[in-house]
Design a protein around this nucleic acid. Structure first.
Lengths: 195, 195
DNA sequence: AAATAAGTAGACAGATCTGTCTGTATCATG
DNA sequence: CATGATACAGACAGATCTGTCTACTTATTT
């Protein structure tokens, strides 16, 4: 062993696998991309995959969890960069969306797409995607409370609708516009919620 | 031939096929459901399918178009049943959502799921689902104008975000609540839009 | 030097998928 | 009765999928 804690998740091959899996799954769909395609693209042997993950399903779940961590970290740092004003901090989420929608390879929300491809609520992939949506709600709840909303939970729920709706619209139309539509609506709702 | 216009779309077998295809595709996913499963469930022979549709992809497109017609008709009649008040007519859309979310076999939005399973914007299925979203927007635009919004297009865009967001949330959480959250937000935005 | 761990290539099984083809049956209409 | 349209069952090709297994290589550590 190279180091004491390289046991599993630090393996370079595992990282290559996860990076390529994310790229292909997001580009073409979780079910569409076959193991063989993935392995060829990642330059990894089949047995290496099955040494690190118990199945394709397991790989998808890990990819989704990793992406969830990245998204939450990205959101958190966008909020921090927005300064101290609670209103700006909350609206920073929508500016972050605009950047996301503008990226060349944007193809909708990886989690919504996972919910769609695995519509059964008991499916592990479905549940992993659902957990992400819960984490986002928790973050929004914090921002709504910070901003002094009378009913932070209600505001957080409404904001989540705007966010998911904007992502779907941006994916369907290929436009960045839904981000500013959502931002404006969010600003209005925030104002009303503070009374 | 039995009658003058039975040439294609009035065939009973074709109808069985479309009804079963809708049910299975919506329940399990467009890619998951295989032709053989579908045929067994519909009691139809394979060649009958390929006489009516050129491919599975073609079948999916027709199923989506048919469902789009049904949804738009359902929405239109819900709006009509809401009476003459422009505000009530607009909010009737969200009451209709609540009923949809409450149905036992609700599994999200068939069109969003189609966009997700076929993420490439040039794909025929993706485009068919996208056209539906456009039709909904057109209907919302009419309702927003009726209701006297200063900028009907802006309101219609915002409402669409709330609707799609609510559908995603309802699918992810299995709850009816997003319908009333969206309804409240819509009422607020409408009020602001009328000044 | 020997042992251990990690990765590789590639064959393989077994299932499943879409779409084609053949030949037969049914039935209304001319 | 004959014709033509519709549908049938089922075999079939050809591709693709996940997951398993074996045997070889490389490198690190003891």
């Amino acid at each position: 062993m190279a180091s004491g804690l390289s046991s599993a998740s630090a393996s370079p091959k595992r990282k290559q696998l996860l990076a390529t899996a994310w790229r292909l799954f997001y580009r073409d769909g979780y079910r569409t991309v076959g193991i063989d395609t993935l392995l060829a693209e990642a330059n990894v042997a089949k047995m290496t995959l099955y040494n690190h993950f118990s199945s394709k399903e397991d790989l998808i779940v890990v990819v989704i969890r990793k992406r969830s961590d990245e998204v939450l970290a990205g959101l958190a740092s966008a909020v921090e960069a927005a300064g101290r004003s609670p209103e700006r901090r909350l609206l920073a989420v929508f500016d972050w969306l605009k950047v996301l929608f503008g990226s060349a390879d944007f193809k909708g929300c990886a989690f919504i797409r996972a919910l769609s491809e695995f519509p059964e609520s008991t499916h592990p992939v479905h549940q992993a995607a659902w957990r992400h949506k819960q984490s986002v709600r928790k973050m929004l709840l914090g921002l709504a409370a910070e901003a002094g909303a009378k009913d932070p939970a209600a505001l957080a729920d409404a904001l989540r609708l705007l966010i998911d709706g904007a992502i779907v619209a941006a994916h369907a139309t290929g436009s960045v516009k839904p981000a500013s539509v959502a931002r404006k609506a969010a600003a209005s709702l925030l104002k009303l919620a503070r009374e």
